[in-house]
Design a protein around this nucleic acid. Structure first.
Lengths: 115, 115
DNA sequence: AAATGTAGTATCCCGCGGGTTACTGGCTCG
DNA sequence: CGAGCCAGTAACCCGCGGGATACTACATTT
């Protein structure tokens, strides 16, 4: 019984821009940060509060990284304890639908109680 | 000039099912595997061919992991060189829209030539 | 005066995820 | 008779991403 030798022609879905986009979502918590920023601009401490299990170190790193990639922008408010405000850039906003799709699946998963 | 003391009440977007879903997409190449399987069932070697830069080791690990999570199913064909066929489960199919959203962003990124 | 809150940075440590290379064992094709 | 393809597995190494903890500097609050 021989191998059902498929033609190597089996067409694959087009090449992946997937990877291109995933680069922006890479790193732990990156999607969460974007998600929470999708509700409007937020400050460092607020994000820490939003995502309780993230450490300041990592949050900082992630914000810098996302800023570097042009996903978010950082604005320093010159108040006495200088505070910073982060918001999604246009590029960042484009990611939101994707994040929403992911969240939607997450919701389904939770409602359908899977062990 | 004092801090614009926001009330700690700043409402955060609802808690994140995001993380729940991301668990399924974790690991390098996992989204790619799902993406390529969304075109229909595929065999190990085909996937290797689809995703040229993945190593057999990692592809194998990823497939096992996804199978364990119920995202894909594995069927061994009893042909002489026994071959295996992978396909998305129902759960896996639910992920496709999310992946598509991600891909869509990727496409935009590539068309808008960002350096 | 002391405590609290603001936005981080500095340091250290560590696990594991991923890359690389090598190997199996049956089958078929040249 | 080899060579090559199929679907993996085994063993080894290594980088870096992430967790924990500690510390700064200033201003307002108590």
């Amino acid at each position: 019984m021989a191998l059902p030798m498929r033609k190597s022609k089996v067409e694959a879905p087009p090449a992946c821009p997937l990877t291109e986009c995933m680069k922006l979502l890479r790193g732990a918590w990156a999607p969460n940060v974007i998600w929470y920023l999708s509700g409007g601009p937020r400050r460092f401490g607020e994000l820490r509060h939003d995502i309780p299990r993230i450490s300041a170190r990592v949050l900082s790193a992630r914000l810098r990284e996302l800023e570097g990639k042009g996903v978010i922008s950082r604005r320093v408010l010159d108040s006495s304890p200088p505070s910073a405000e982060y918001r999604l850039s246009e590029l960042g906003a484009e990611l939101v639908p994707a994040i929403k799709a992911i969240v939607a699946v997450g919701v389904k998963l939770k409602s359908a109680h899977r062990p």
